Amino acid sequence: MSAPYILVLFYSRHGATAEMARHIARGIEQGGIEARLRTVPAISTECEAVAPSIPEDGALYASLDDLKNCSGLALGSPTRFGNMAAPLKYFLDGTSNLWLTGALVGKPAGVFTSTASLHGGQETTLLSMIMPLLHHGMLITGLPYSESALLNTTGGGTPYGPSHHAGADGKRKLDEHEIALCRALGLRLAATAQKLESPRG
Rank of each mutant, 00 (worst) to 15 (best):
S198R: 08
R188G: 06
P132L: 04
S148A: 14
P87Y: 12
T113Y: 07
A59G: 11
L127W: 01
A3S: 08
T17I: 13
S146C: 14
I6Y: 07
H136L: 06
L100T: 10
G110F: 01
P199W: 09
S63V: 00
R200N: 04
P144S: 15
Y145W: 15
R200E: 07
R22E: 14
P87M: 12
L143M: 08
E123S: 07
L181G: 11
L88F: 06
F81A: 10
P41R: 05
G120R: 00
L185G: 09
L7H: 00
F112Q: 05
T113W: 03
T125G: 03
T79N: 07
E176M: 08
Y61V: 01
L118N: 07
A62K: 00
T153W: 09
A86G: 13
T115H: 02
L150M: 08
A85Y: 03
L37S: 05
N69E: 03
S198C: 02
S44L: 07
T141V: 15
L92V: 10
E19N: 15
L174K: 11
L143F: 09
L185R: 10
T154K: 13
S71I: 03
N152I: 04
H119R: 06
S12C: 10
M1P: 07
W99A: 06
N97F: 04
E29G: 02
L185F: 14
Y90H: 15
L9P: 01
G82D: 07
H165P: 00
S128A: 12
L189E: 03
